[in-house]
Write a protein that binds this DNA or RNA. Structure first.
Lengths: 333, 333
DNA sequence: CTGAAAGCGCTAACAT
DNA sequence: ATGTTAGCGCTTTCAG
């Protein structure tokens, strides 16, 4: 392995000079600069960023913890964060927590040990204490954690917009179908928004919520919970509320499943039943699904903006809420 | 920031001893070990992995370059690689090349500078020379590059299986619809397999290939090429071949678009026209699409296996081909 | 069983 | 304009 020392010796200068040439610091005669660059070429030398980091105490690496990458929404998030990092000359160390709070803790410790410059977490934790004396700038997303800056989209508004969209396009008996309503979760806010909007419009509020420890993200591929799979739950719901003519789900995957299932049992979408999902990834586009769309790119760029500010010890908002919007497609009238 | 020196001083031992305790090397009296661990706790000390890497010359980081994360197939890949890395105690530095050969080059140089232990590339390059004197172990995926170990799925077989599936379920006039047939590309192999299988079965080979510099991955969200969008091309194809009763596309996104489009223009799937896509991500599952499915997890684990071997300077196969299979769903009979 | 000293590859005062 | 020296936080001989 070629080091700066090798270059210095071969070029007949000191390592400091080589360092100066490379970092464009101080003043160097054009002659030595040329010579150094030539030797660098000849030796095919590449500076060691790790060694540099050890001195500068900056790795230019951002750590990102998401529940899974293999999920349309988070793949969008990861893509956005990576692109934004790259354009600010940062690199991305990517971790998946698989919705495990313990894994998240281990990963954040690992990121600290690896001296990343900042961390973004789609957190599972309810307890902020591990991040209080964490030493590293952190931003949590899709959740508020006391004392930690957070960025969320307006989930309450999302639920409300969904109800409004359904009602405005003629649904008399809308229902929300989904899972997980832990206090303070994003699902819970979406549900609340939906409920309140129904009530405001004088429409009976209906829900079919599968209260499950496994959230959608853990096992979104199976969608199999409490020993009872999606089909069973869905049929059960239709039995309970046979006059259902509008369904809101707190994510797109479930909405897609429902779309398919309804067609299979001979109920037409959107004429018979309307569907509105949540997220706004490529999936909803390809399925022609009406959705509440999150401004993912803007969310991520806000997150990074805040993280970068925190890295410079600037004051940042303790919480930032981004507005959502409805994208109307073929699953609603 | 707490360093080993702080721990050593407070515990009244040398840094060597602290290092030994941490790495479980040499022999340490139970008493000092206890004392050191206690001090570490008290001081909330966390070893600096960067500094350690500088000595050990191992970062335990793997670099991965994919065209995009925001794509169902690659999000699956990234998820698989990350999980496999994590279970081998490696971390993942994720990069996107956006199908640019120059970006790929810059990224691979960056990864080398950051002293990752190995690199996995979904490469865009035709020229292997940058990776010949790269110093780092590399594995390329979905492409062969002379002199660089590669892992691919059997794209020819995939095309052939697609044709076979279509023909066996009654298609008399199958066609392949897609883009990019650059020599040696994976699409080209899929097309070749499809063509040969048609010929073997005495069926007229038909294709509608949009030969485009922009590959599917670059702009898969728009699917808009040569100033002519998907709809135009698709309608043009149906005009050219009105008796089409089976369509094979070299990816799932296109297949999904086609599925929707056919329904819109009143042609029923699979009764009127059958569709078979390629990849086998969550998308095909949700769209109830028959596909040629890649064994993504196995591919990724093979890639890592080879990479780890290369990192130990073991001999590895120059190329490994994995078999694909058809998953039958609702878009074929 | 423990410590002193050297050094990983680089940057940053401080000289000259 | 350039070199000398002293580290960054850690591991690793080599002594004792």
């Amino acid at each position: 392995m070629i080091t700066m020392k090798d270059v210095a010796e071969k070029a007949g200068v000191s390592v400091t000079t080589v360092s100066r040439v490379l970092n464009n610091r101080g003043s160097i005669s054009e002659k030595t600069r040329k010579k150094v660059f030539r030797t660098i070429e000849e030796l095919n030398y590449h500076p060691n960023e790790m060694a540099r980091s050890l001195m500068t105490k900056k790795t230019h690496i951002i750590g990102l913890i998401v529940p899974a990458v293999d999920h349309p929404y988070f793949s969008m998030v990861v893509d956005a964060v990576e692109s934004l990092c790259a354009s600010s000359n940062y690199k991305l160390l990517l971790c998946t927590s698989h919705n495990s709070s313990e894994k998240e803790l281990k990963l954040s410790a690992m990121l600290r040990a690896n001296k990343v410059d900042g961390v973004i977490i789609y957190s599972q934790k309810e307890d902020p204490s591990p991040y209080m004396d964490y030493e590293l700038p952190v931003v949590v997303v899709d959740k508020t954690l006391p004392g930690i800056p957070s960025v969320l989209s307006d989930n309450y508004q999302g639920g409300s917009l969904a109800a409004k969209a359904l009602i405005e396009s003629g649904s008399k008996h809308p229902i929300i179908f989904g899972f997980e309503s832990r206090k303070n979760s994003i699902s819970e806010r979406r549900i609340a928004g939906f409920r309140d909007e129904c009530i405001r419009n004088g429409i009976e509020y209906r829900e079919y919520i599968i209260d499950n420890e496994l959230s959608i993200n853990t096992d979104f591929k199976k969608l199999d919970f409490l020993g009872c799979d999606f089909d069973d739950h869905f049929i059960k719901m239709l039995d309970m509320y046979p006059d259902t003519d509008g369904i809101f789900t707190t994510n797109e995957i479930l909405a897609s499943k429902i779309l398919l299932k309804l067609e299979k049992i001979g109920r037409s979408v959107p004429d018979d039943v309307q569907i509105i999902g949540y997220d706004g990834t490529i999936l909803s586009e390809l399925m022609d699904l009406t959705v509440v769309s999150q401004p993912t790119l803007q969310i991520c760029s806000t997150v990074l903006e805040i993280l970068f500010k925190r890295m410079e010890n600037k004051i940042v908002p303790s919480s930032t809420i981004m507005p959502v919007s409805v994208i109307k497609r073929g699953s609603t009238k």
